[in-house]
Each structure stands twice: as structure tokens, then as C-alpha cells.
């Protein structure tokens, strides 16, 4: 309650404080977002936008020229997300669990070093890994050779069956720092009394982690999962930097972001198509919205939050 709220006068200063942020945010983010959703119901016919209802969506889902690419991109994107959930988050939790153990020396040095890939741009990460995995340069084969596994080497980024998984793992390499930090923070915020009580009851080591700490950090794991979901279904840069807009080989690494870019902007012989671009963006919007709502209304409600 503020003093000025008791006065009946118009409080202009509230408007002045809010106006710049709300105006820029509305004009550059919210209106274009809805503008894009709206454009997906129109199609350019003879340089004029004509309302076509859900026709664009039907084209995207069922027209053989579009649907194959769309379902391919959606499937790849789902795989991209699954790899992140299965690899990135468990590694992040493992590292955080180790880092948060008491009396560990050099913990902050490890933390700082492991977080470095996260701050690098996708161009560096995508291209750097492309060079390292390149059979021409031979860094990867010579390392595998050193541990006696040279026969495992393959041009991973160039083979259709491996390329997407390889890129997902590169992305995992880049972003493992985020779940690590968030879980680390959650683990540190567990009060000592709870840990001591567990130790008095003889719950230590591994079973202490599974039975005491893990239930307490579940809300953080929930947040990380939804952040990963949003970031993955909105990804573009890494694939574009490593494989180009065509998301080769033979579209094996095409995800919704690269598909949207090619459709909207055009590439090589393909002409850019704003209304189909909006349609893909709208689908991405609905997927992300569904994921966020699923988290907010189903996951978050079920997870008990503990107040310390």
C-alpha cells in the first residue's frame, strides 16, 4: 500500500513509468506475434491478401509438397528435444550433485569452466564442432585412435542416420551448464537440518540423494524441462551454422526453425512465402504454448513446493 494510493488524484507517474516498456513490448513483440498468427489465415493471390481460413494449415499438413517436410521437421525437432531431456538434464543433475557436495575443493573453478560453452555463440559452437568432427582435419579420429576406438569413427555430421543425433549432442554440450547451475542452486538451498535429520536416520550417500534431495529439487527439474522445451522448439542457429539453411544431409537435420527460415525467406530456387512462413510460426507458437500450459497447469500443480 502506498501513500499516494489514498489520494483520489490521477497518478500520472504510474503511466509514465510503465509507458516506454509497455509500448515497445506491445509494438515490437505482442502485435507482431498476433500479426503473424493472423497472416497464417491469409494467402497472397495476385498481390492481394485473401482470407483463406484454415487452408494454409491444411496445405501444411496434407499437401504432399509441404507435409513431408513439415512432419520431417517436427519429428526431428521431437528427437532433438528427447536427446536433450535424456542426456543434458541427467548430466546436469549429476554434475550439480557432485559440485554441491560439501568440502569439495575447486568447486567454483569447475563451475566456471563447465559453463563456458553456454556463453559462446552458435556460430562458434556449430562451426568449431564441424571442424573437429571433420574427417579432413582428423582431430576426432586421432583422439579415438588414442583410446583404441578408431574404428568407431564416421563422418557423423555427414551421414543421414547420425547427423541429427550428433547435432543434438553438440547442443547438449553447449547448454549443459544451465541445468547444472539451476540444480546446483536448488541443492544449495536445501537446509542443513533436513540433511542432518536424514543422516541421523541413517540415510546417507546415494540413498540420501534419491530419497531426500531429489524430491526437493523436482520443481527445479520441472522448470528446466519447460525451458528446454521452449528453447528446443524454437532452435535454429546451431543447425544453420553447422549445416546451412538446407539442414543437410538431405534434410536429415531439418527442424521447425530451419524449415520456417527456408519457407519464409526462401532459399536458392525456392521463393519466400510469408503466409506459409506465418503458418509454420503459428504451429510453433501452438506447440510452445501447449508445452508451457502443460507445465503450468499439470506439472507445476502436482509438484509440492517446500518452503524452507
Amino acid at each position: 500500500m502506498s501513500i499516494s494510493s489514498e489520494k483520489p488524484t490521477v497518478r500520472w507517474h504510474i503511466g509514465v513509468f510503465l509507458a516506454p516498456a509497455v509500448l515497445i513490448y506491445t509494438a515490437v513483440m505482442i502485435l507482431p506475434l498476433f500479426g503473424t498468427l493472423q497472416l497464417s489465415f491469409f494467402r497472397m493471390i495476385d498481390r492481394e491478401a485473401v482470407f483463406v481460413g484454415l487452408e494454409n494449415f491444411r496445405t501444411l499438413f496434407f499437401d504432399p509438397r509441404w507435409s513431408a517436410s513439415f512432419w520431417n521437421a517436427l519429428g526431428n525437432n521431437t528427437w532433438f528435444f528427447i536427446i536433450h531431456m535424456l542426456v543434458q538434464n541427467p548430466i546436469g543433475i549429476l554434475l550439480a550433485a557432485i559440485l554441491s557436495s560439501p568440502r569439495l575443493r575447486l568447486a567454483s573453478a569447475y563451475r566456471t569452466a563447465i559453463f563456458i560453452p553456454t556463453i559462446l555463440s552458435f556460430v562458434i559452437v556449430g562451426f568449431g564442432w564441424k571442424l573437429i568432427l571433420s574427417p579432413i582435419w582428423g582431430v576426432a579420429p586421432s583422439i579415438l585412435d588414442a583410446v583404441g576406438l578408431k574404428m568407431l569413427f564416421a563422418p557423423w555430421l555427414g551421414k543421414e542416420e547420425y547427423a541429427l543425433t550428433t547435432l543434438s549432442l553438440i547442443s547438449v554440450w553447449q547448454f549443459v551448464g544451465i541445468p547444472m547451475m539451476l540444480i546446483y542452486a536448488a541443492l544449495l538451498s536445501i537446509p542443513d537440518d533436513i540433511i542432518e535429520a536424514a543422516e541421523c536416520d541413517g540415510v546417507t550417500g546415494m540413498s540420501q540423494f534419491w530419497k531426500v534431495k531429489l524430491p526437493l529439487i523436482l520443481p527445479s527439474i520441472g522448470i528446466i524441462s519447460v525451458l528446454t522445451f521452449v528453447a528446443n522448439f524454437n532452435a535454429f542457429d546451431l543447425i544453420y551454422s553447422a549445416q546451412g539453411a538446407l539442414a543437410g544431409p538431405n534434410y536429415a537435420t531439418d527442424i521447425l526453425g530451419t524449415f520456417l527460415y527456408r519457407t519464409f525467406f526462401g532459399f536458392q530456387l525456392q521463393i519466400g512465402d510469408a503466409s506459409m512462413g506465418s503458418t509454420i510460426a503459428s504451429i510453433m507458437f501452438l506447440i510452445i504454448l501447449a508445452g508451457v500450459c502443460f507445465y503450468l497447469f499439470i506439472i507445476q500443480r502436482r509438484l509440492r513446493r517446500y518452503q524452507f
Partner: peptide
Amino acid sequence: LYLALGIMIPIRLGTVAILQL
């Protein structure tokens, strides 16, 4: 809540209309 919407919904999805703007 209106301002918080943008934390979860990426601005990229509005690119088509942003470019037109």
C-alpha cells in the same frame, strides 16, 4: 502477467510480422 508472457513465448515466432513492420 502481460509483461511476463514474453519470458516463455519467444519473440522469434513473430518474425514475419516484425519484418513487415
